[in-house]
Nucleic acid binder design. Structure first.
Lengths: 385, 385
DNA sequence: CTGAAAGCGCTAACAC
DNA sequence: GTGTTAGCGCTTTCAG
């Protein structure tokens, strides 16, 4: 049971150590039947390469680290699943750690990942309002779910587009008086609001009002607002509500119905953001689709791109050193790192699409909840729906 | 930006390499002010220890690997969260990987973890019906959610106790005719059924029938069975339904109500297994609590126990070699591993508790859903409820 | 393809 | 407490 190492495999297969190493890392350099011999020895002995040694010696790590603030929130889960799917596809392993939404734990895992020489790292920062990129990142790093003016790699849902798309939908549904509902205290909601305004800007004939829903932007706020609106005189009442979150939207529907009106006949309601947790109401809610899965996929694509670029550069710089240096004497000085170019910068906004459902009188475009996953496999809404 | 290493820190702090290493791994061996000096140098330089080198050189890894079949199912998430909390508490890091419910990916990540010399590994196997422990595990391994006759470490929810506890509850609610509903095709459901039978065994006066719900044990099966039962003549009708899954239970409630009876007045219904996903119905469902969180915690406790035992043994065996060997000549032969004792064996069954709610006429013991998390913090039902 | 050898960055043992 | 050094298991190179 003593740990079996590469030399044991070599002996078992009757080849040299270097050949086994090559079979593992550069199979094309080893004759197929030798390769088979080695593979058999590996299986017989139950050999598992020591990743530490492999990495230390300069081997390529194929693991990507992902630091998530939580493991119980819909969005993070979607990100994780999307990232996992894409990593698998691209031949990378994905390792997930949770920061419990604490900056120091986040930092800890980031350092840990860097220390294990992962190929790249994805972070969905905790406390996103006051946040900034980490210095000292030796592996390509992609930030998920945040904006920043600093250089770097970022992937976020396009919140502005979410507002726009939902607003546009209300317009096609012939809304004439629209109330936008929400507190818009944070960046996300502000962007959705702006997006909605953008969409309505082209239609000055549509009456617009913005109603603050109270600090929380939670279901209860939506309920009371919905109730309140439903009790206005018919000629002062909007015919459509655009809630800046799905929770608000779901709450509003309940409030409206409690006041004796019907959705969508008396009043249309649309949510925003695609939060599956708020989809359980009596009338299914029109909203923008959740984009977490796509965000996760994009993040992996970006980080892999950066990883491979970096490797190409390293190879190039090594080659350069070789041809430049007189191959002689003295240990080679450390190959100069490809010049300290600025980190890549790329802000990727993931575009939402619309889920038109009952609350806006959805017709042909209604996507019934039960079959969602089947219809839009990429969405991966998950079992927890 | 060239990677800073321990020797750089040593120079920066004006001490020797060994001292820095000690400061990091055995702080008690270094004078506090020296330690401070070193810490400052570390911060100034942004030093991050190379985990690969550290491990290769025999350092202690504090990471535990967790392989989960999915990242979107309630139970796995609970396990992950419980494991994370406990690992944090015990000073270990937790790294999570997903097998997409495939044996080969599971195997891959397991090997990967072993290769990175994690301190221990937790696995919730995919395809649990036909399953067996892995050989060649060099790190302590705990299997989650499965039974086995092989030696090893296992943590599972006590399914039998779940059946028992729910059955006992129906008894205290004065059920006189009970129908147990479910197909019991898999081990889990069979155990719940046995548990329920155990509980009723003491009360031969209670009429018992078992109704097969159809292969799927899904909500729809529950619905039709509930409907069917509700339409029996009152004197042939059970007064209580014990569904072997919460999905069945929730479906049954809907079916009963559709047939014009009320729950719990005409017919009590209880579920089993504590599946939050099935808790959305009109009448809240009595069930046994989900134990995933506790399973995760227990699993970490077990693996850490095994890790520390193993370390203690290694220390002991090294000491033995030292005192035995004449300290002289020739490189020491590899310290004989503590004799190849059988792997530890421990089957831990996590006991459920009851969530008595409306569907069985819950009274004082009813735990309102909204406040669940607050009342029972250990439960950690998660936001997705 | 083989065989030998130079590290990768660090820990732990040792002598001081 | 400090400074020095021998590996940990592997990848890579280099000369056969």
């Amino acid at each position: 049971m003593a740990k079996v190492k590469i030399i044991d495999v070599a002996r078992e297969a009757g080849v040299s150590l270097g050949t086994v190493s090559n079979a593992l890392n550069h199979p094309e350099k080893v004759r197929p039947d030798t390769r088979r011999l080695i593979q058999e020895a590996i299986d017989r002995l139950g050999y598992t390469p020591n990743q530490s040694a492999r990495l230390l010696a300069g081997g390529r790590n194929t693991a990507i680290g992902l630091v998530l603030p939580r493991l119980n929130h819909g969005t993070s889960l979607q990100v994780a699943n999307g990232a996992h799917a894409e990593a698998l596809k691209l031949g990378y392993d994905l390792l997930i750690a949770t920061s419990s939404n604490k900056r120091d734990l986040e930092r800890h895992y980031l350092d840990y990942f860097m220390g294990t020489q992962v190929a790249g790292v994805l972070v969905q920062p905790a406390e996103i309002e006051r946040w900034q990129p980490y210095p000292h990142t030796f592996a390509p790093t992609v930030y998920v779910g945040v904006h920043s003016d600093e250089p770097g790699l970022f992937v976020t849902a396009d919140h502005r587009a979410q507002g726009r798309i939902v607003a546009a939908h209300l317009i096609t549904r012939h809304a004439e008086r629209v109330a936008i509902v929400g507190h818009a205290a944070n960046q996300t909601l502000r962007l959705r609001l702006e997006g909605a305004r953008d969409a309505f800007a082209a239609r000055p004939d549509i009456a617009l009002e913005v109603l603050d829903a109270g600090e929380g932007d939670v279901s209860g706020d939506g309920y009371s607002l919905g109730h309140q609106i439903a009790r206005r005189r018919a000629d002062e009442r909007p015919d459509a509500l655009l809630a800046l979150t799905d929770e608000l939207g779901a709450g509003a529907i309940a409030g409206i119905m409690a006041a004796g009106l019907t959705v969508p006949d008396d009043l249309m309601v649309a949510g925003c953001g695609g939060n599956p947790l708020a989809w359980g109401g009596a009338v299914s809610l029109t909203t923008s689709a959740p984009t977490g899965y796509e965000v996760g996929r994009k993040a992996v694509q970006l980080v892999v791109e950066a990883i491979e670029l970096k490797r190409a550069e390293e190879r190039a710089s090594i080659r350069q050193v070789r041809t430049t240096m007189p191959r002689s004497a003295a240990p080679l000085p450390r190959a100069p790192l490809a010049e300290e170019h600025e980190p890549l910068t790329h802000h990727e906004l993931v575009r939402p699409f619309l889920l038109a459902r009952e609350s806006t009188g959805g017709t042909g475009t209604v996507t019934p909840l039960g079959t969602q996953t089947a219809l839009i496999p990429e969405l991966n809404l998950g079992v927890y729906l």
